[in-house]
Every structure is written in C-alpha cells, then in structure tokens.
Design a protein around this nucleic acid. Structure first.
Lengths: 338, 338
DNA sequence: GTGAAAGCGCTAACAC
DNA sequence: GTGTTAGCGCTTTCAC
C-alpha cells in the first residue's frame, strides 16, 4: 500500500466516471451490483478513505473543535482536555489545542487563526491577561461570524454564550464552613487578585462563611498572590506574624505550599493547622499529609462543554436554542490535612 | 462585521472577477493601483481572511500537526505538548491532540482518522497497549503513505523514523550511582514491566550502576509495577519484609508513593531512606520532603520533535534527509529527599 | 489591466 | 445503470 488513492484514480482504473465510483462506494442502488463490487474491492484493497479536507470544504464543516486554555501543565486544565477529547472523539470530532500562556495577545491570535475555517466551534477559558484587560472583542467577533463558543471556568458575562463553570462560590463557602465546624477560627485565605473571576468568587464564598459564623474578617489573613506558582514568601511572613489555625487556598498549589512551609516551621498539620485547597489533582493525593480539597471535576467540565458545543454544531442552523449555563457541582474531598 | 466574506462576494461587489480580487489582495502589479486599493480597503473593512480549508485543499498541506500521546494528565506529557505547541504556533502550525489512553486500538483509530488529510505529520509516543502488542503496522502505513512521523520517548526501533528520546539508561545509571556514592547499598527499584521501552532502559541503568559498584543485584528489591498509578501495596510489603536504605522510582509517582509510605511507617527521609524519582514535575517540587529527580525536560523534547517534523515538512518532497535520533540529556535535580 | 479556466477531492442534482 | 455538471474557496496559468 502506497500513497493515498483518490476517487479519480479509481475511476481511471476502471474507466468509469468519478461519480460512479463515489456512488458505488456509498452502496448506492443506482449502481449495478457487479460494478459496486469490483470498485469496493479495489477500494478496500487500496485502503481508500475520503479526504477530510475535501469533505470539509464541501460540507462547510471541519469536524474539528478548537480549545483555548491559559495553560496545560496543570491538573485542572489537562483534565478538561481529557474530558473534551474523550467526548469529541466519540462523536467523530478532533480537538485542536491552543495555549494562550495567560497572554491576551496569544489568545487573540490563536482565536483568529482557528476561526478562518480550521474549526467549527470553540471551547475556551480566559487567560489572565484577558481578564485583566477586560477586552473580549475577539470572542464576540467569532460569535458574530456564526461560530459557537462555549466558555468554561474562567468566563465573562460580557460575552453571551454557553458557559460551563463550577460553583466556585459555594465550593469555597462549604470548605471554609467545614473548617469552622472543626473549630477553626483564624482562617487564612490564599487567593488570586480580584480581576480573576474564579478567585473573586472563591473569596466571596470565604467571606460569606465567616460572616455567617459571626467570625470577623481580618484583612491581614487574606493574601492576594499574583504569581500562580509563587507566594512562598508572603505565606511565610504570614505564619511568622500571625497565629493561624487554618488555611484555605484557592488553588492546590497555594495550599500545598502553605502546608510545606508550616511543617518546616514546626507547625504540625492537621493538629495545629488545617489546610484545604481547590482542584483535586495529583498534588493533593501525593502530598504528605494528603490534602483535603474542593474537587473541580475538570473532566466533567470538559465533557459537558464538548457536549454543549457539539449539540449546537449538529442542530439546524436556524434553530435558536437559548444559551445555557451549566454548573458542575464541586465536592469536598476530605483527606489527612483537616 | 458579520459572516465571513469570500473572494466571490468581494468580486461581485465590484463587478470584477474572482481572480482579480485574489491578485489585488496579493498586491500583484498586474492589477491597477486604483483597483487594488479599493479592493484592499474593502477587504480590510470586512476583515477578509482566506479560508484555511480551501488553502489546504489547494496546497495539499494543512499546516496542522497531529500529536498522539498515551495520556495528558501527567506532567511529562503535558510539558511535551507545551513544547510542541509553542514551536508549532511560532511556525504557523496548529496542533491536533489525540489521547490514546494507553490503548492500542484507540491509537490506531486516532492515527487513521488524522491521516486522511487532517494533518501533515505526526508526533507520537507509544501507548502501553502498543508496546505490549508489539504491533506497529499503523505507523508504518502512514509513513508508507508519505506522512512523516517523529517518535518521542516511548519509541520502537521497528519503525524507521525520526526519534527524540532522553537518555533513560544514563539518567537512571547516574541517579543510582549518586545513591551509591551517598553510601546507600540496599537500593530498591520501582519500575514498569519490561515491555515498556523506557522502563526497560531505566532498569538497565540501575543494574549497570550496581554492577559497577560491585553491589549484588537482589531480585526482591526490584518491583515491577503494572499500574502506573498504583503499587502502594507492593511497596509497603517490600518495606515490611526487607531493610532498604534507598529507592529509585522510574516515575515521579512511584517515588513519592514510596516516600509517603515510608514516612507513615516511621522511616524518615532522607535520613533512613534516600529517594530519587524520574520526571521532574510539580509533584517533585511540592512533595515533603521535596524529591530529587531525574529531569526529563519534556518541553525540550516537544520542541525538538516539532522542529524535526516541521523541517521535514518544509523541505522539498524529493529531498531524502536521513532519519535522525536526538537524545535530550536528562539531568539530576537534587532536593531534600537525598 | 482584467478575466477565464483548470484544478485540489468530493458530493449530489440532474441528464441520458 | 452511468455520466455530466456545478460547486465548496482559493490560486495560478494563460488569454485577451
């Protein structure tokens, strides 16, 4: 078996027209049994497969979906891809992955590149840069061009589209409430700057839980960490200056970092300090002690988003299903750190 | 700005032919300055961009590269994607990601799906199933069809292609040698079954280091773990039955698991037990104590593979550059666990 | 300076 | 039962 074979070549081989071959391969009753058979046999033997590009051009659909994420070396996002990929491939779709690296510019370029026919629709989570800039024109443009977009996790209400999120607010609220029920009172919050949508919501959940329990909010127990893979110094300073009996980190990384710093300072976890993180990834499972976390169910988010997008792609063009907002429930996975 | 606009529509708008528009947009001197200007202005205003699919069909190249990996929720593989994506997007290529989930069948299906015109070439790492089955016909077939393949990490010599690997053998050898130099003598090996190419090589490196130091190999210090995210029971049994003063795990996960089990049994790391893992991921950084590892430089592997592939795609079809084998050096990153 | 036509690979309505 | 034709969007050669 060599080079891919085309309808044209098969048609030449048997001195018939291209359309005869096409029909024969599709088992059309228009074609005589005999002709069908020889053509099908030949095609099988030469492993004929229709060219995807030609089909895309003809059908005006690529059967590709684009997914744009801020980063990929991160448990949550890679499990999202996993979910998207698994549902998409079941449905005969391929997944084109672009990484914005948290950069607004790269996000814009990626979108424009893919929007020129390479894909049928987008699944995306906003980059840090985009959330900071609050500029969403690139997303609204592709939507205006008739290309469906499903926003996930880091979303904006400035763009009208399907959305899949977790209940960040309630997830955080329940985690902090759990700490309070365990008798903790001086609960530190390790969060992101407020322009990050998810950081803001999780912070609000924290505040709500404290308020409800009648615990006064102390601003110096709240650390806003700019660098998602940093914060060590700030955390250390906090432990040195204040007495703290629990930590709620809005990422897995923040929580584990806090736990390690505490242990090095002789603070034992969970006896002296309870720790809860967000994102139930591998880090949480292998940390020592293992980390109690709010599980984000990334794979389910990905699957849900893919389902929403593909449904929309397969429905009639003129149908005008309203946009939906799916909320995937987070769950508290308790382990040794609390 | 609405629906994507085509050359045809522009041509109608100005009552010129399609080819005139095409040339005008390409700034061809054949077209009068005046015509060029009005067409270009109109195109800019309507945000005209040529349709990628049409270009692909015309040029017989898609500017997409396919990457097939056994899994993605894994630091090494996601950093490989990162590397591939970053180089590819610099060069104007998109990346289509497929996940075989360690399954032979899914690997075959993915390859065939992509090979029908969706991409120009492959980057791939063999699934566990494929290594077990030792069946590589699907790969040889796409190569026979003229589609370049770059194998990375988990490779086979049964397929003649470009390859990018790390020096698994030497990486393991140096890690174990390091343990020996630290005075360790009863060094356990946590490895994969031998049909996994990388597991086999790392095992050989371990054996070589022992041999060189004159330390007899003890088979019951060698654990072959079938489940890449398991092995806890086997490890526990080992620690209970034998006295061990060091552990070399061929994955980060094996090493951290061993470390945690040891600590729970009251064995202190690194005093009583030194631990080294493979793959320098986030787990290693946040474990407590942090883990000494053999860094695999996934991102560099991805970048190198992408470079190799794209170079081959852009060279003349008839040029016959011999296949190369790039070896990315692994490095030992020492941390608290040794 | 502009346009017609062929071709990339495929499908489908319509002839014969 | 088989073939012709047009068309998806674009490029490019060749005519005018």
């Amino acid at each position: 078996m060599k080079k891919k074979i085309t309808l044209k070549e098969i048609s030449k081989r048997f001195n018939v027209s291209i359309s005869t071959v096409s029909k024969a391969l599709k088992n059309s009753p228009e074609i005589s049994e005999k002709t069908r058979k020889i053509i099908q046999d030949f095609a099988k033997e030469h492993n004929y497969k229709p060219n995807n590009i030609a089909l895309s051009l003809k059908n005006q659909k690529t059967k590709n979906i684009g997914i744009i994420l801020p980063e990929i070396v991160h448990y949550f996002f890679s499990s999202v891809i996993n979910g998207v990929e698994s549902y998409a491939s079941e449905q005969g779709y391929n997944v084109i992955v672009c990484i914005s690296n948290e950069s607004f510019d790269k996000e814009v370029i990626n979108m424009q590149m893919l929007a020129n026919g390479s894909i049928d629709g987008f699944i995306m989570s906003l980059s840090k840069g985009t959330e900071k800039a609050q500029d969403f024109h690139h997303i609204n443009e592709v939507i205006a061009q008739g290309m469906p977009v499903v926003q996930i996790d880091r979303i904006t209400e400035e763009v009208d589209s399907d959305k899949v999120i977790i209940d960040d607010y309630h997830g955080a609220y329940h985690a902090v409430k759990y700490l309070i029920e365990k008798g903790r009172k001086k609960i530190a919050l390790l969060t992101m700057p407020d322009y990050m949508s998810v950081g803001k919501l999780r912070t609000e959940g924290y505040l709500k839980a404290l308020e409800e329990a009648g615990i006064p909010v102390e601003q110096d127990l709240i650390l806003r960490i700019e660098d998602f893979y940093g914060g060590g110094d700030q955390i250390k300073a906090l432990f040195e200056e204040r007495s703290v009996d629990a930590v709620f980190g809005v990422t897995e990384f923040f929580a584990v970092t806090a736990m390690n710093i505490a242990q090095k300072m002789g603070i034992s976890v969970p006896e002296d300090l309870s720790v809860i993180g967000f994102t139930d990834g591998i880090i949480s499972m292998v940390s020592n002690p293992s980390l109690t976390t709010v599980s984000q169910h990334g794979e389910e988010i990905g699957k849900t988003a893919a389902k929403l997008l593909i449904n929309r792609l397969e429905e009639d063009d003129d149908s005008t299903t309203p946009y939906v907002r799916e909320v995937v429930k987070s769950t508290l996975v308790t382990r040794e750190s609390t």
